[in-house]
Amino acid sequence: MAEITRVEDFLKENNYKREIIRFKEDTSTSELAAQALGTDVARIAKSIVFKNKSEDFFMVVAAGNVKINNKAIKELTGSKAKMANADEVLSVTGYSPGGVCPFALATDLPVYLDESLQAYDLVYAAAGTSNAVLPISYGELLDITGGIGCRVTSEG
């Protein structure tokens, strides 16, 4: 629960009026979150942590219906990268997998926002735990994460 408080505090400090939506059911995957919200999986913003060859971590945020393009990821960071494991995700973000919020992170890792997030006015990002989501726009995500727009996915 501390993670949700961390996200709420970050929203308040940065003057974002968005409200976290909490569920009884599990929202830890894009499909489960879409189901709980009764919306399309393309409106779920999945936050994925990667680690490249030089052990640098970075995060890609993309729509739930698209596939990450490994070649594009390699272009992005200059070397092959693989998804971080659960312990690594927890240590660099402060969230467990399934509840990774793309801001209020435990460390300053680069955040890249894929253009697939622009398909809808509002998308839903995980809000720190595996049963809480946050409605947010692409523009707000860019601002609040200090992230950079990119193109690293292809249709699912």
Binding site: F58, Y112, I148
Partner: peptide, 12 residues
Amino acid sequence: NEACGRVGGIMS
């Protein structure tokens, strides 16, 4: 993507 990656890497 290369340029995005460079900006993001330097920034963090």
